[in-house]
Simulated assay, not measured.
Amino acid sequence: MSLFDQLCEFSRNHCIGICGCLVPFNLILSFLTLVYVGREMSPQLVRKNAIAVYSGVTLMVLHVSTWFLIGVVMIPTFVLPVFGATCVAIHLWATKSPVTMRRFLLWLLQPVLNQKQRATI
C-alpha cells in the first residue's frame, strides 16, 4: 500500500474529526476577518487570516477529494467544497477590496445600528 493510499485511508477513517476541526476553524477565521475589516484593523492581520483559511480550505478540499476518489457522492461531499469556496471568496474580497466590504457590512448592519429602542428583559 502506497503512502498516498494510506493518507486517503486515514482521511476517510477520521472524517468526523477532520471536518469537526476544519469547518469551525474556517468559520471562526472568516468571521474574524469580517470583524477586522469592519473595524478597519491592520491589513496584515487580514492577510494572516486569509493564509490560514486558504490552508484550511485546501486541507478540506483534499479530504473531500478522497471520498470522490472512491465514488462516495453524498450531500457533504458537495456542501464542504461550496463552504470552502465561500470562505475563500470572503478572504479574497477582504484582501483585495476591504473598503467595499466594509461598506457592505455597514449596509447590512444599518437596521441594527439605527434602532432607537433598547431591548428590555
Rank of each mutant, 00 (worst) to 15 (best):
M1N: 12
S2P: 14
L3R: 12
D5N: 11
Q6A: 15
E9N: 08
E9H: 12
F10P: 05
S11E: 01
R12I: 01
I16C: 11
C19R: 14
I28S: 12
L32A: 11
T33W: 01
V35G: 02
Y36V: 06
V37W: 03
V37M: 02
R39L: 09
Q44K: 15
L45D: 05
K48R: 10
N49P: 03
I51W: 09
V53P: 01
S55K: 13
G56A: 04
V57D: 04
V57H: 07
T58L: 15
M60D: 06
V64Y: 02
S65V: 10
V72M: 11
I75F: 13
T77S: 08
F78E: 06
V79F: 09
P81E: 01
F83W: 09
C87V: 07
C87Y: 03
A89N: 04
H91Y: 01
K96T: 15
P98Q: 01
T100L: 00
R103L: 12
R103P: 06
F104C: 13
L105C: 04
L108A: 07
L108R: 02
L108P: 05
L109S: 03
Q110H: 06
Q110F: 14
P111C: 06
P111Y: 02
Q115F: 10
Q117G: 08
Q117R: 12
T120M: 08
I121E: 14
